[in-house]
Design a protein around this nucleic acid. Structure first.
Lengths: 192, 192
DNA sequence: CGTATCATGTAAGGGGTTACATGATTCT
DNA sequence: AGAATCATGTAACCCCTTACATGATACG
């Protein structure tokens, strides 16, 4: 049930509507948790029924009204309790790893192409995260509290993307160079 | 639908019963995909109905019979097609990151304790993976085909655990030291 | 006028987890 | 006799995804 708590964190940082939250889940928070708008609206409804959040209809000019949610005292209590509760083991879920492992049971060249695409995606995301870090946190040494946490989570995103790029580079390199009887690839100009 | 294909990969490496697969999902394959035995049995039944696998009852001495599954030609075709198919974007799911991000809305000391536990877990897993790599792949440079893939996936597990240890170390250090003389140090052990 | 964006939903179904069930055999 | 392991399941539930729905206003 981490989505509820991710929403609580986001709403404590700043009140928001369902669509606002949807946008946030495509940005900072979404680096480590994803959610669709359907899910967000449904969960918000449940959270309001549980008394964790309240909503106020806000009129806008030239736009439909929106329901802006904020965290109640009960919601803040729930979040605090959750933050101190034991962390269940994270269960791995990487489809790409299965493909890497099973590559010899299909068209290896095709798999390597997919891996190259994937590496390019991760490299792009890595650049994006690094840009965000430089833009939003130019002086990390001075940060404290919530801003420091936000920065450190972004650092995690950078580390994770860097790991993917490194790993996939190792995979491609191991399959390209040593017994290089495969088709020549190396489309992406990637350093090693 | 990656579980079916993870099972196909595993069964192509070697035929197995449901419980065998369950054990494998706590080992090599499980480094990047987890599954409970209930799920495995249910999915195996569906796969047999679809004609992707067949089972043979095998008698054992002093133990109950077991149903050993192996991949059919249709299953092999399905796996090959899947391996060449586009890879959907991996959707992040890290409860720990949400806790890091939200730490200032609860008892920070308690959160830091949880993070320490988590770091210790990842460090233990890292050691375990490195032991497996040293034991099972003493000469990585000589590997090819399926064995090379298995090794490279294990390398990914090592990289991932290393990333967690480094990240959580950075987090703890940033919140421990009074003044962030911030030099996020990597332990990035470079590969072959 | 048609398309895009803002904003909030409903409905159906897939995938996964948790709890419980069953029956045999080996170990202490 | 009791516990642990081997081996295979059922049932209920929860979370999430995919597809579809609605109605407004802004843009070209």
């Amino acid at each position: 049930m981490a989505l509820e708590h991710a929403i609580l964190v986001s709403l404590r940082e700043r009140p928001a509507s369902g669509l606002d939250l949807d946008r946030r889940f495509n940005r900072s928070i979404g680096f480590f948790w994803s959610a669709t708008h359907q899910q967000i609206y449904r969960v918000l409804k449940g959270m309001e029924a549980d008394g964790w959040v309240t909503s106020v209809a806000v009129e806008q000019q030239g736009r439909p009204d929106k329901k802006v949610y904020e965290v109640t005292a009960a919601g803040a209590r729930e979040l605090a309790a959750w933050l101190s509760s034991p962390i269940p083991a994270e269960k791995p879920r990487s489809e790409l790893a299965i493909r890497l492992r099973g590559a010899s049971y299909g068209d290896r060249a095709a798999v390597l192409d997919r891996v190259s695409e994937q590496r390019a995606d991760h490299a792009t995301r890595l650049e994006h995260y690094e840009m965000l870090a430089a833009r939003d946190f130019p002086e990390p040494g001075t940060l404290t509290g919530q801003a420091l946490d936000a920065y450190l989570v972004l650092r995690g995103g950078i580390r994770l993307e860097q790991m993917w790029v490194d790993w996939l580079t190792e995979y491609l390199h191991a399959h390209d160079s040593p017994h290089g009887s495969h088709a020549p690839r190396d489309t992406e100009g990637q350093s090693l």
